[in-house]
Nucleic acid binder design. Sequence first.
DNA 1: CAATCGCTGTCATATTATGCCAAATCTGAA
DNA 2: TTCAGATTTGGCATAATATGACAGCGATTG
Lengths: 160, 160
Amino acid sequence: MPNLKLDAIDRKILAALQRNARLTNVELADEVGLSPSPCLRRVRILEEAGVIGGYHASLNRSELGLGLTVFVGIKVERHHGAAPDAFRDAVRDMPEVIACHLVSGEADFLLQIVVADLAAYEKLLLGTLLNLPGVTDIRSNFAIRTLKETAPLPLGHLPQ
Amino acid sequence: MPNLKLDAIDRKILAALQRNARLTNVELADEVGLSPSPCLRRVRILEEAGVIGGYHASLNRSELGLGLTVFVGIKVERHHGAAPDAFRDAVRDMPEVIACHLVSGEADFLLQIVVADLAAYEKLLLGTLLNLPGVTDIRSNFAIRTLKETAPLPLGHLPQ
DNA sequence: CAATCGCTGTCATATTATGCCAAATCTGAA
DNA sequence: TTCAGATTTGGCATAATATGACAGCGATTG
């Protein structure tokens, strides 16, 4: 559903800000071949159009003592009644859940969870996850090693 | 493996920059209750210590015409020889793969893939994924709806 | 108590962000 | 091709920010 036409310069801007969101506007303008003024104007337009959703620092989990990443597949009762909404709300309110998707396949929901260690995960699993509304099955897959994470979107492979 | 002790102000800084990486240093300093000078110094220290890994713009995928997110579980032959390394390198070079983890459980690797649509995914699956070195099985789970994505890390739940 | 270490706030200066406006470029029609 | 209208750009002036030097404050240690 693209609402905005992006030209080559816009794509350069997006690629640059994906790579480093703290570039100054002067640096960014230089990189994409514009003067600062129109460059900043394009960035503002991209922000207001929602193409740029936000800017976030990416933190080192293990350095912060959050050493365990778990991918959790959850099955819930056939969707009807208030259970699905309740499940959604509960997941939204869990700070340990950093991503949650409704997916096709074996599981209904796929969650990415970040905690300190196995003990913390056990607590979360037994104390919260298993008690979420409508849950019938949970499979936990632990991330053993991360090869890639939050890589930039493939802007070089945009359609059109 | 925390190498650095973080105090309450450091955590506030991290939380703020996770939420909005384009805060000016003046705004950030005000938010965490410091003057700009020591605030900037702390940010630099956090960057150099690797606690802050980078700053990235988060882009709206559907707005960019990248409407399909797929979670792909891949099994590979029992790890030995050059196959694992070759697999890793191949995955690293695929821009459509925005995340890849070695995981426990059914699959060996869990990939997150972003493409324009089903046709693009079919092409990637048949043309590339199935031909990756050592692959014995692939299961594709399509994201139907995203409830949460790239949520901030749970800094309020740090150990210690 | 005195010395030291770490961290803070203040201040001056270099850089940057931002809005305005004229010039340049593009588009479509005659 | 030429021209008018619409869009976008670059330059400039001003306000805001980043950055580094420096002195002061507070905690710790001997």
